[in-house]
């Protein structure tokens, strides 16, 4: 089974990289840009058919290492 994890900065955490990307896109004439936030993306493949168990394990991976819960939020999605 394959899962994706998308990690984003919490809404009240300053994201200077996202701001710079936004400014640059505006300089490239992409108008009407409202807001850009930069994040991280992981794809994880697991040898296990028990979807509930895998989701639990991936959630644990997020909490233990992949995500800093003070500043980041995450979403887990099944890809295949």
């Amino acid at each position: 089974m394959k899962f994706s994890i998308t990690i984003t900065l919490k809404k009240d955490v300053l994201d200077p990289q996202g701001k710079v990307v936004q400014n640059t896109l505006q300089n490239l004439n992409f108008k009407n840009l409202k807001n850009i936030r930069q994040g991280k993306y992981f794809e994880i493949e697991v040898n296990n058919d028990d979807q509930k168990d895998v989701e639990k394990k991936i959630d644990e991976m997020c909490k233990k290492l992949l995500v800093n819960l003070i500043i980041e939020d995450y979403k887990i999605n099944k890809i295949s």
Partner: peptide, 15 residues
Amino acid sequence: ETGLLKGVLLRNKNL
């Protein structure tokens, strides 16, 4: 990151 100290160190404001 270990939790021995609370808080976090983000990227410098000026990048």
